[in-house]
Simulated assay, not measured.
Amino acid sequence: MTSERRSKTLTAVLMITPFVITYLTVFAYPVYKMFALSFTNAPLVGEGEWVGFDNYLKLLNQKLFFTSVWNTGYFVVLTVIPNTLIGLGLALMVVRLKGWLQSLILVLFFLPYILPVSVVTQIWEWVLDQQFGIAQHVIEFVTGRRISVFRDPLWAMPMVALVTIWWTNGFNLLLFIAGLRNIPTDYYEAAMLDGATRWQCFKRITWPLIWPVTALVLTLQLILQLKIFDQVYLMTEGGPFNSTYVLLQLVYREAFRLNHGGLGSAVAVFLFLIIVTVSVLQYQLLRVRGR
């Protein structure tokens, strides 16, 4: 038995060793290096001198830092809950379809998700172009004039959020479809026999049973949207007047443009701690609410 246990232990160690090595190399060491650099005045490449908390104090005295924190939070508000609710609503409609029609609709909704961000932003720059964009007809009908949305501080961030929802919602849709398919149809049949309406079926059956998937989608969306960078950089570059300047763009500015590796690492540490803290708290609160 001892020999067999040793053999199993050795097999288990050999099986997990590639993952452990990859994890330490790709994730753990870079995170350690990020924390270490944040306490130095190092450039992007090379060593620096220990400066303690000076980088963090500089951030607290930097107006652009607070602007980027605010804009990141604003973007999260515009995307996380709306994206989740839209995905759930679409899933409730698509799950009622059958056969090839359901497959076709799923493909159409999921197709944007597999597109590169550069393609997505290019498509929407054409759609929202002030002179030739087809979406300008809707904007003109609502506001009475055409608007260069990515050059207007009031419109820029909501439009980036709209593009993000259109781009990423297909993934949420698939998660909700999977969750809805796991709900036994017997529950609905029994409820209908008792005279329950569709709203009552949703409130008493669908919503409680789909809640774990909803909590997962909300957590994933929160993490993803806190890391917003690509769409903002390609569409607005943080403008106009820093109205779309986000935390990852500040990391890019300090580390890659100004060669302030230590200060850029401090911003990255701040964002890392926000993501870990907020996502863990949200997921635990959602689990408690689900129970």
Rank of each mutant, 00 (worst) to 15 (best):
I139V: 15
L250H: 13
G170Y: 10
V217Q: 07
L174Q: 03
W50M: 09
Y113H: 14
W199T: 09
L90N: 06
Y29M: 13
V160R: 00
D129K: 01
M235N: 01
T244G: 07
I275K: 06
W100T: 13
A255I: 02
D194C: 03
P18I: 10
P43A: 11
P240L: 11
V213N: 08
A191H: 06
Y233P: 00
R146H: 11
T244L: 11
V251L: 04
I223V: 15
M235L: 15
I275H: 08
V76K: 06
T143L: 15
L285H: 03
N55S: 12
P30E: 03
S3Q: 14
E189M: 08
D152T: 08
N182E: 15
Q231N: 07
V26I: 15
F272P: 05
H137V: 11
L24M: 14
L222D: 00
L154D: 13
I123C: 03
L111V: 13
Q130P: 06
Y245K: 10
W124H: 10
R257Y: 11
L248R: 10
I139H: 07
F150R: 04
P82Y: 08
W124C: 03
V26Q: 07
Q102R: 15
V246K: 08
V77I: 15
Y233L: 07
N169D: 06
I205H: 07
L128Q: 00
K63I: 06
T25Q: 09
W70R: 15
F53Y: 05
S68I: 07
V107R: 13
I210A: 10
L108P: 02
M93I: 04
W50R: 10
N41F: 05
I21R: 02
Y29I: 14
I114Q: 03
V76S: 10
V31R: 00
T185Q: 15
T2E: 14
D230L: 02
G195I: 05
W166G: 09
T206N: 11
W124N: 07
L14W: 12
M34I: 04
L37F: 12
L10C: 03
V278P: 06
T214A: 13
L250R: 06
G238L: 08
L286G: 05
L104G: 14
L226F: 15
I205R: 09
G262L: 12
P112S: 09
L174S: 05
V95Y: 06
M192Y: 10
L209G: 08
R253T: 09
V142D: 01
L218D: 07
Y245T: 01
W126E: 05
Y56C: 01
I147L: 12
I205C: 07
Y29P: 00
V117Y: 02
V280Q: 11
K8G: 00
G261K: 09
V127P: 00
L250D: 09
F270Q: 04
F27P: 00
L24N: 08
D194G: 04
Y32W: 14
L286E: 14
G261H: 07
Q122C: 00
R5I: 15
Q249P: 00
F202W: 12
L258R: 11
T219G: 14
Q249S: 05
A12I: 11
L218F: 04
F35S: 03
F176Q: 06
S38D: 07
C201T: 07
I21Y: 10
